[in-house]
Computed example of a mutant assay.
Amino acid sequence: MQIRDANETDLAGILQIYNDAVEHSTAIWNEQTVDLANRRAWLASHQAAGNAVLVAVDAEAQVLGYASFCAWRTQDGFRQTVEHSVYVRDGQRGNGIGRALLTQLIERARQADMHVLIGAVDSANRDSIHLHQQLGFIHVGQLRQVGRKFHRWLDLTLMQLTLGPRKDRP
């Protein structure tokens, strides 16, 4: 497995993973699938803003998962806080792909001089919450019944990793 910056050739794989999560999980709280043009615009906007978008690919360049971060809030005071997303292809979960992606994303956030990385996780997703805890994220809150999907109310758990000062600075 290789982790690298996403590019145009990865969009079909990213689209498949995204739409699978929309249709079959509460990892993404959207209810409508998207098309390739949507993912193309998403990637372009992330790249234009200097936000990381990473993919994990196998030897045949098949996208196994992807991860990204973007602004937490748009006001200037939040400029060093980003929210991340990590998604892994169905059938590949539990193989360390999500951990590898999130580990690389944390490093990218540090390199981008970010101070805090936020994860907003469906509270029922115990595996994701556990992964975040293993990587140093702390539970900072839970928002009850703030989302709705599959005819039920969903709670959102907020996880935070304070990155601290860059190691190459005094």
Rank of each mutant, 00 (worst) to 15 (best):
Trp72Val: 04
Leu101Ser: 01
Gly77Ile: 05
Ser123His: 15
Glu107Ala: 12
Glu8Asn: 13
Tyr66Cys: 09
His115Lys: 05
Ser68His: 05
Thr74Trp: 11
Gln111Glu: 13
Leu36Ile: 15
Gln32Pro: 02
Gln80Thr: 15
Gly65Trp: 00
Ser85Thr: 07
Val86Leu: 10
Asp122Phe: 10
Arg79Pro: 03
Asn51Glu: 02
Val22Arg: 07
Ile106Pro: 01
Ser25Ala: 02
Ala12Asp: 15
Leu15Met: 09
Gly13His: 14
Gln104Lys: 09
Gly77Asp: 08
His24Asp: 06
Gln62Ile: 11
Ala27Met: 05
Ser128Ile: 03
Leu101Phe: 03
Glu107Trp: 06
Asp122Trp: 09
His24Tyr: 06
Leu11Arg: 14
Thr26Met: 00
Glu83Lys: 01
Glu8Tyr: 08
Val116His: 14
Trp29Gly: 02
Ser123Val: 09
His130Trp: 06
Val22Cys: 05
Ala100Pro: 03
Asp113Lys: 07
Val53Cys: 13
Ala21Gln: 10
Leu102Val: 00
Ser128Lys: 04
Ile17Cys: 07
Glu23Ile: 08
Thr103Glu: 15
His115Val: 05
Met114Tyr: 06
Phe78Glu: 02
Gln16Met: 11
Ala37Asp: 13
Ser85Lys: 10
His24Val: 00
Ile118Gln: 10
Asn51Ser: 12
Leu11Met: 12
Asp35Cys: 01
Ser45Arg: 15
Thr33Gly: 14
Gln62His: 14
Gln92Asn: 09
Ser123Thr: 13
Gln62Phe: 01
Leu64Arg: 08
Asp10Thr: 04
Glu83Thr: 11
Ala21Val: 03
Ala59Tyr: 05
Ala67Arg: 00
Val82Pro: 08
Ala56Leu: 09
His132Arg: 04
Gly94Met: 04
Arg108Ser: 11
Gln75Tyr: 13
Thr9Pro: 01
Asp122Leu: 03
Asn19Tyr: 11
Asp76Ile: 12
Asn125Trp: 05
Gln134Trp: 04
Thr9Trp: 07
Asp35Tyr: 11
Glu31Val: 14
Phe69Leu: 11
Glu8Ile: 10
Gln134Asn: 09
Thr26Ser: 06
Thr81Ile: 09
Leu11Tyr: 12
Arg110Trp: 06
Glu31Ser: 11
Gly65Ala: 00
Glu107Lys: 10
His24Trp: 00
Ala100Thr: 02
Ala12His: 13
Gly50Thr: 09
Ala52Asn: 09
Gln75Ala: 12
Leu117Thr: 05
Tyr66Glu: 00
His24Gly: 03
Thr81Ala: 14
Ala52Val: 14
Arg108Lys: 14
Glu8Lys: 12
Cys70Gly: 09
Ala41Leu: 08
Val63Gly: 03
Ile129Cys: 08
Val57Cys: 07
Arg89Asp: 12
Ala120Trp: 07
His130Lys: 11
Gln75Arg: 15
Gly50Asp: 01
Val55Ser: 06
Gln92Ser: 12
Arg108Glu: 08
Leu105Phe: 01
Asn38Cys: 13
Glu31Thr: 15
Thr9Glu: 12
Asp127Ser: 13
Leu64Ser: 07
Ile129Ala: 00
Ala48Lys: 14
Gln104Met: 04
Phe78Gln: 04
Ala100Val: 02
Ala27Glu: 02
Ile17Phe: 03
His84Glu: 03
Thr33Val: 15
Gln104Thr: 08
Gln133His: 09
Thr74Pro: 10
Tyr66Arg: 10
Ala41Gln: 14
Gln47Thr: 15
Ala61Met: 10
Ser45Phe: 06
Ala49Asn: 15
Tyr66Gly: 08
Asp113Tyr: 05
His84Cys: 07
Asp10Glu: 10
